[in-house]
Design a protein around this nucleic acid. Structure first.
Length: 513
RNA sequence: GCGGAAGUAGCUCAAUUGGUAGAGCUCCAGCCUUCCAAGCUGGAGGUUGCGGGUUCGAGACCCGUCUUCCGCUCCA
């Protein structure tokens, strides 16, 4: 039995060997957690994106798609909370290897001292009958000493944050003799700022330039265009806006192949609804999204829902669709009931109303939002991981086959002349010229036909079509199925409709419509 | 970021205590003309991740660095 670890390694080398995924800038030793899609990977990725896009925009009359810019006004990220949430000062304890937010450590320390004051107050209250708490707090030597400590720390901390002086933040931790709750040691690293957003300069003159960020998520491009789309598209609630695109996060730890990358692509849809209806729409979209996955025919056991117990401040319900990757169940897609948080924030920061007039209720409101957000690269990985198989055949030999959903396969059919003479290549070429307008097809005449079959198996091509000597007279060819390895003799002019049945996205979309 | 393991041809891997960098598959040209990777001939492909050091001599030993995988950590 192959170990999951080996499976994962096989997957990575298979992805490279057959032109699906290369490490970025490999000739310069690579760039950490950045990957390029190769000739087959790009096709597979496009097909996944197209399946998603059509399932959203084409199958739903009330969902439209946009393509927002990666650069956005810097205030966008203040409104969304990313500027604050994505830039914590962090510190590690060298003994316990635990990482903490430096500000939290200091705040906890302050809270501890406050606790001591409360204890003094309690003790005194028991001792004296006519206890004047206010008087005690303002005169008792010990309390005053504690209070001075607190004020000093807070003042220093505030000052350090304002100056962005991380050395001073560390010094505060050292001076306060704060210990690691786990190891109890004071062996700290320096404080470092991890801003998860990539920043760059807008404008060519650096002094006048303002800092802008590469978007850490695509969602905000939809929220800031909410009214544009609603008005110009004459959209009525409930309606959705879909988008696919790159997002960027400067992850501290980015690993596990393309699972967590610094540059990644999201496919997401924000569905705007009437407040109070979020529960029903949340359930509806959970179901809709799962059926999108199921239609691909990947084992249903590999999927599961994981409900968030601890919710983000804006959400009133959230769950992930998790997929069983070679390294365990991990998040593939998120479905979040985001309430009116985002639009409300943008209304506040921009000073522009972000409201919808509901003619049925005859009133205006900020819509609630249900979000579905899936990582395209993760979907790619999920499909690759569940498709790559080593099969033992009846005759004892083995074959490596990538049993991709046929509709997503990079190449739909390969056409071979059984031998490369006697006019067979010419017939093969004619078939290709006929099919290439509808499908991505390929030609191969090298090596034995069996070898050519296996080559196509390795990249997941659903059909191989072989031209033989009989084809010259009967105008038929054999068509060989990737999964069953069965061959069938069919008329050349029937090829298009046979392939169509198996590989068109339509068949997939019909399953979920 | 910490700890562990690893990096040799496109892929999978060899190379005795430090002593001429090799094989299989792949790829290319040709022969053969074959329906499930297996025939024949020839060929290409490498500053052993990169940079230093020790040595008469380094793929191997030492230091640094980059990258990857695993665990911890982190994660809207």
């Amino acid at each position: 039995m192959t170990q999951p670890e080996d499976l994962f390694k096989n997957l990575i080398s298979h992805a490279k060997e057959y032109g699906f995924i290369f490490q970025s800038s490999e000739i310069y030793d690579g760039l950490s957690a950045v990957y390029d899609y190769g000739q087959n990977g790009a096709l597979l990725k496009n097909n996944i994106r197209q399946y998603w896009w059509q399932s959203m925009v084409q199958l739903h009359e009330n969902i439209v798609g946009i393509d927002a810019a990666i650069f956005m006004h810097p205030t966008t990220w203040k409104a969304s909370g990313h500027v604050d949430a994505f830039s914590d000062p962090l510190i590690d304890n060298k003994d316990s290897k635990k990482r903490y937010r430096a500000d939290v450590l200091i705040e906890e320390h302050v809270a501890k001292i406050e606790g001591k004051i409360e204890k003094e107050v309690e003790k005194a209250a028991k001792r004296f009958e006519n206890f004047d708490e206010k008087m005690f707090r303002s005169t008792n030597a010990r309390v005053l000493e504690y209070q001075k400590k607190i004020d000093d720390i807070n003042a220093r901390f505030k000052n350090a944050l304002e100056k962005n002086d991380l050395a001073e933040v560390k010094q505060i931790i050292v001076d306060c003799e704060i210990v690691c709750p786990v190891s109890g040691s004071k062996n700290w690293t320096d404080v470092r700022q991890f801003n998860l957003m990539f920043s760059t300069q807008l404008g060519s003159v650096s002094e006048e330039a303002s800092t802008i960020y590469l978007r850490p998520e695509t969602a905000q491009g939809i929220f800031v265009n909410f009214l544009n789309v609603q008005k110009t598209g004459r959209m009525k609630i409930p309606f959705g806006i879909a988008q696919t695109g790159k997002a960027f996060r400067n992850e501290i730890v980015a690993r596990q192949f393309i699972f967590r990358m610094r540059e990644f692509e999201q496919m997401e849809m924000q569905f705007f609804i009437r407040p109070g209806t979020q529960k029903e729409w949340y359930d509806k979209w959970k179901e809709t999204r799962l059926s999108w996955h199921k239609a691909l025919g990947i084992s249903e056991k590999k999927y599961r829902f994981h409900d968030h117990i601890k919710l983000a401040h804006y959400a009133d319900a959230a769950c992930d669709i998790e997929f069983e990757f070679p390294f365990g169940f991990k998040e593939l897609e998120g479905i979040h009931s985001r309430s009116d948080f985002d639009l409300k924030q943008h209304e506040q920061f921009s000073g522009r109303k972000q409201q919808y007039f509901d003619p049925e209720l005859n009133q205006s409101y900020i819509p609630y939002v249900i979000e579905t957000s899936i990582g395209l690269d993760r979907m790619f990985l999920a499909i690759m991981a569940s498709s790559l198989k080593e099969e033992k055949l009846e005759d004892g030999s083995e074959r490596v086959v990538l049993s991709l959903p046929p509709q997503l396969a990079p190449i739909k059919a390969a056409i071979f002349p059984l031998v490369k003479k006697d006019g067979l290549p010419e017939i093969a070429e004619k078939i290709i010229n006929d099919l290439k307008f509808d499908y991505n097809v390929t030609y191969d005449e090298k090596d034995t036909v069996g070898k050519r079959y296996r080559r196509q198996d390795a990249i997941g091509t659903p059909y191989c079509i072989t031209v033989d000597h009989e084809s010259l007279t009967d105008h038929c060819v054999t068509i060989r199925d990737r999964d069953t390895m069965k061959q069938e003799r069919v008329a050349i002019d029937k090829l298009k409709s046979i392939i169509e049945q198996k590989v068109s996205l339509t068949s997939l979309l019909k399953k979920i419509a």
